[in-house]
Nucleic acid binder design. Structure first.
Lengths: 139, 139
DNA sequence: TTGCGTGCAAAGGTTTTGCATGGCA
DNA sequence: TGCCATGCAAAACCTTTGCACGCAA
């Protein structure tokens, strides 16, 4: 794993601080921007995007998209998570996003690769459906 | 399956014609717009987006996104119920779309429902990755 | 001092919305 | 005739880029 290079700036530090504090959650550029502003340390939008982009390139963040009309999400990837991959589940009803780490689901990847020659990219894949709460609500 | 409602207009017909002719392929609003213009029957951008949106709502099209900076893709969903039991694999390299029917993959649905309370909608879900040919090409 | 990082503003592209007009039923 | 559909233009939105200045090393 390459380390995040370049200078050590206050902005970069603040951004990393927020991301690591929200490990396992989905963070958007907007949330990050608003949080930093609310904290009294506003950071320019361009800087935020540039930093996020660099972190994705360095493999420290994962970037993915739910829908073209909503903004991109970023998620901090702890080193241990490299092995613990997970899938994203998006509820079409409540719009909530879940992630699932599960051996059975990891088996999908192996199965598809072995039997169908297809290598899934989990970071780009989102499974759509209905979450438990929304299913029960529909009854 | 709800049928596409509303009036039968020339624009709507043209759009459906293009979409059905490209079944199994990814169509963007821009491609559609340019095609219609090239055919001598230009359709306003707003109309295209409104029609596509309505078709997605009616379950006739599927909409999905690869990246937040690129535009959304639409795909015609043949009405056959058979397709509902397929998972869709999209190769990010060659852009090809594959349909996979597989007991193992069907097991995913049951597993997620039983163990995670999440009910997948296969028709809305696309698994992204690399197909066999493109993987071998990259070596 | 050197040159990367930052902020501001403007540009870029896709998608949505408001409103008057046109066309289907 | 009554409404929905359309088209145009403008707005909204997220993201990127250009450029001058600031700050880390």
């Amino acid at each position: 794993m390459k380390q995040s290079g370049g200078y050590k700036t206050k902005q970069k530090e603040k951004i990393m601080q927020y991301l690591t504090a929200h490990e396992g959650q989905h963070v958007t550029a907007q949330e990050l921007s608003r949080h930093l502003e609310a904290e009294g340390t506003p950071v320019g939008t361009a800087t935020i995007y540039r930093q996020l982009d660099a972190l994705v390139t360095d493999g420290i963040l994962r970037k993915y998209t739910i829908d073209s009309r909503s903004c991109a999400c970023y998620e901090y990837l702890p080193l241990s998570a490299e092995c613990k991959r997970h899938f994203h589940l998006k509820c079409m009803e409540c719009e909530q996003l879940f992630h699932v780490t599960c051996e059975h689901l990891d088996g999908i990847e192996a199965h598809l690769l072995e039997h169908h020659g297809f290598q899934i990219d989990q970071s780009k894949t989102v499974l759509y459906g209905l979450c438990k709460a929304c299913r029960e609500k529909q009854k």
